[in-house]
């Protein structure tokens, strides 16, 4: 594998995080005493992207596409099989101990399920203050209570709630607690894994607005992982579309949503129900048949070909690389963005 397909166009702000050819294979073993590896689940299979300072990069895909594993790899919660995650130019996948701890201060995570990601036996103050126990240099002991109350205020919770327990809060409030904990160490990057998908519609908007406000206030860079394409469009500057461990298409919000060239992205977008009944009879839909294949035995060639409406014989033989398709190379239009398809083209309306 090479890094040839990484982007080389001039970029407005320097990348804070560079992911290069990241791979995670979970071994499948057989036997109890003498374990033999009989295969591997290719959860993440050669993913590359840049996260620029102050931007929000959305990662979308269906369940099982590897987006959560990718989040864990970026956080170094899971060791990569190969590839690099460079934070400010330095590879962090090989770091351990103190060096890793120091880096983690700057990359924090917000989890999906606000009901299980908070310890029910700890008070809110202890939960939000726990990062200070691990990184005491950020807040001296006597100062912590005040810091926690400040954080509660920042995420829109009453600072007097500091002694309450998670069960005394609603789902949306719990997600605010999770965000406050993520913010405690003043990180530069926040990886948010489906931060609003467990919340009710009227509460989702509150949390999304909060995240947008915090981003400009603290100059944060987000990796925003979600399956909801409407939310991703709303909050993200750039979007990576994943399928079976690979990035299928990568571009800014307009390029992906208005000028997608990959059939998977096109099908995904057309499957999202639009909350407007006007003209619903005329709406054209690309319906994909079948299910996502198992990542333990991905199809040869293009991994999407088994469900693709454009698939041809060539797709079974050649692995399409994530690069600007030849047809658009040299053009300046919005269709000229990386797309891993041999037959990439925009849909004609």
């Amino acid at each position: 594998m090479s890094t040839a397909h990484s982007e080389r166009e001039p970029i407005p702000r320097e990348p804070i995080l560079q992911v290069r050819d990241l791979v995670k294979h979970f071994p499948l073993t057989q036997g109890i005493l003498f374990k033999r590896q009989i295969g591997a689940v290719k959860a993440v299979d050669g993913v590359s992207f840049d996260l620029r300072k102050g931007e929000t990069l959305g990662i979308v895909g269906e369940s099982g596409c590897g987006k959560s594993t990718l989040a864990k790899l970026v956080m170094n919660l899971e060791r990569a099989t190969s590839g690099q995650v460079r934070y400010k130019g330095k590879d962090i996948t090989a770091l351990r101990g103190h060096a890793l701890k120091a880096v983690r201060r700057n990359i924090q995570m917000v989890f999906q399920d606000p009901y299980t990601s908070l310890n029910p036996r700890m008070t809110v103050g202890d939960i939000i203050g726990e990062p200070f126990d691990i990184h005491p240099e950020v807040a001296p002991k006597g100062d912590r209570r005040r810091k926690v109350q400040e954080l509660l205020d920042v995420v829109g919770l009453n600072p007097e709630y500091i002694n309450r327990y998670p069960h005394q809060f609603s789902g949306g409030q719990r997600q605010r607690i999770g965000i406050a904990r993520g913010l405690a160490l003043r990180p530069e990057v926040i990886v948010a894994d489906e931060p609003v998908s467990a919340l009710d519609v009227s509460i989702q908007a509150q949390v999304i607005n909060l995240m947008a406000r915090l981003q400009s206030e603290f100059d944060l860079s987000y990796i925003f992982i979600a399956h909801d394409l409407s939310i991703v469009r709303h909050i993200c500057d750039r979007v990576a579309v994943m399928y079976l461990g690979k990035v299928m298409e990568l571009g800014d919000e307009d390029q992906i949503y208005e000028h997608s060239t990959h059939p998977y992205t096109q099908a995904l977008l057309s499957a999202v129900p639009v909350p407007d009944p006007a003209g619903r009879e005329e709406r054209e839909r690309i319906i994909l048949y079948g299910d996502v294949p198992s990542p333990a035995a991905p199809p040869s060639g293009c991994v999407f070909r088994t469900r693709c409406f454009k698939a041809q014989e060539r797709c079974a033989r050649e692995v399409p690389l994530l690069a600007v398709p030849e047809a658009f190379r040299g053009t300046k239009g919005p269709a000229a963005h990386p797309s891993a398809c041999l037959f990439a083209e925009e849909l004609t309306a």
Binding site: I208, N209, H234, I235, L269
Partner: peptide, 12 residues
């Protein structure tokens, strides 16, 4: 309050 796929940049 819902973000829409066909509309961008509207404040929720």
């Amino acid at each position: 309050s819902i973000p829409r796929l066909d509309q961008k940049g509207r404040q929720l």
